[in-house]
Design a binder for these strands. Structure first.
Lengths: 144, 144
DNA sequence: ACAAGTATGCACCTTTTGGTAAGTGCCCAA
DNA sequence: TTGGGCACTTACCAAAAGGTGCATACTTGT
């Protein structure tokens, strides 16, 4: 009956919507991950979702440890993907700000469950990563 | 009133839960992305969520174009992260299967909105990617 | 005996991603 | 005149991710 090889009566599939569609994407999730993956993109999305239109410099200061090159690059990609809008006020000294588009906002909304999951299971995930990488090297007080 | 510089009365923040927490993760989303990013991981999660315990070979055939090295590697990582369980039946010829853990299943559930988003906006995303990369090289009729 | 299938491991290489440091053109303050 | 802030840009480099192909040890089928 509970023979692992037969696997009867599957409970409701959690990851539906994941049907291979357009060329280049294996599924919706794949498409999504391509636009959000990038070391700083989630953070950028996060800050823009929170703060609304944000100037470059401010964003730069908000997203800690990001370099100019990286920030610009990720912003450009997000812009090219239609997730953020860049507004250049053509002033001098330069003034530019970035905000989420409707698409970007909808993505940010879709990300909420992932944020929640990550927050809830961060301890587990963190623990496992700590061992894989040399994470405790600087000594941020492990167990002892 | 709708002066872009003043931004009054923010609507509800969509990406809450994204508060910097444990060392190594900037936010929950960051933690989540670290465990799901990997070229084949979403697909693996997808198939496991659909099919339940799946033998290596079957998975290999399901996840099209994946190589042994990659599949094994991603499975190992997913296993190390506590998302999938590997069962070795110690038979000969070898028989091993992979299934989602409770944690893996909960993640798969959290991924659903992303799948949906990706599916809904795949056309847009695909279009933009087509131009960025050399996507049209095989000639799937561009504009001209 | 030989090929094929089973689930991996390993060596080597290319591509992608991320990071550092410097420079640009413009203005303002000291 | 020097220095700083603004929003970038560029050249170069290191690290991570991904890919190819061969090897293993054992069994079944031809």
């Amino acid at each position: 009956m509970s023979d692992p090889t037969s696997l009867p009566a599957r409970p409701p599939l959690p990851v539906q919507n994941c049907t291979p569609n357009l060329p280049g994407f294996t599924c919706g999730l794949d498409a999504t991950l391509r636009v959000v993956s990038g070391k700083w993109k989630p953070l950028i999305l996060y800050f823009l979702a929170q703060g609304g239109p944000t100037r470059y410099g401010e964003l730069r200061r908000s997203v800690r440890d990001v370099s100019d090159k990286m920030l610009i690059q990720q912003l450009k990609e997000l812009e090219a993907d239609g997730l953020v809008k860049r507004t250049d006020y053509k002033e001098v000294p330069p003034r530019v700000d970035y905000s989420l588009t409707t698409l970007g906002l909808s993505l940010a909304e879709a990300l909420v469950p992932l944020c929640t999951w990550g927050t809830e299971h961060m301890a587990e995930v963190s623990r496992v990563f700590a061992e894989r990488e040399g994470w405790t090297r600087r000594g941020h007080q492990p167990t002892g």
